[in-house]
């Protein structure tokens, strides 16, 4: 995956300290937690986004497989600057195995990806590190966990 490595290495490093601050920062979703799902032509998944108000510009992206409801992803995406989006965390459902490439650790079932300095330094995907979780199994459970972990509150006028 040589191309991939060089591609990722061109990106400026996001320090662990900043990553922790982004995760901990209070976030408010003004549109509530009722995503407007849409399906793109020739795609077998649903997608939606929730905009957030936060000291660090970020948003939530949601994906759900049409074929398998347990295969989903909930992402916190930080916009470092316009045109430069960084995935901070990704809550995955059970799509199969995940392998942490730095250690060879194999994870089965739902897992949470997180960007780390180490994975950014060594190429590949910055959020290539993941940990197993028993906190959720379904999409709704994962969203509730994500909302709690990422300090997201809803606020409607």
């Amino acid at each position: 995956m040589g191309n991939g490595d060089s591609h990722e290495l061109r990106r400026p490093l996001l320090k662990n300290e900043l990553i922790s601050k982004i995760i901990a920062a209070p976030k408010i979703t003004t549109s509530g937690l009722d995503p407007k799902w849409r399906r793109q032509k020739d795609q077998a998944h649903w997608r939606a986004e929730l905009q957030l108000e936060c000291a660090y510009p970020c948003r939530i992206a949601l994906r759900k497989s049409i074929d398998n409801p347990l295969n989903f992803s909930i992402l916190l995406i930080y916009t470092q600057w316009v045109g430069r989006d960084v995935i901070i965390v990704r809550y995955n459902g059970d799509h199969g195995l995940h392998i942490n490439k730095r250690t060879g650790e194999r994870i089965r079932g739902p897992h949470i990806h997180m960007i780390t300095e180490e994975y950014q330094r060594h190429g590949g995907k910055p959020e290539g590190f993941a940990t197993a979780t028993c906190e959720y199994r379904t999409f709704d459970e994962a969203l509730a966990t994500f909302i709690s972990d990422m300090s997201v509150r809803t606020w409607k006028l």
Binding site: M1, G4, Q43, A44, H45, R63, S65, I66, D67, N68, N71, S73, N92, H95, G96, L97, H98, I99, N100, K101, H113, G124, K125, E127, G128, F129, A130
Partner: peptide, 28 residues
């Protein structure tokens, strides 16, 4: 894939017919 997630490949076997599919996971 590049993030360490294993390629999702499902084998479906019905009526003596086998289909290997990614269930659209790659584009997702």
């Amino acid at each position: 894939y590049h993030d360490g997630d294993e390629l999702r490949i499902v084998l479906k076997a019905t009526d003596g017919r086998l289909v290997l599919t990614d269930e659209g996971h790659t584009l997702m």
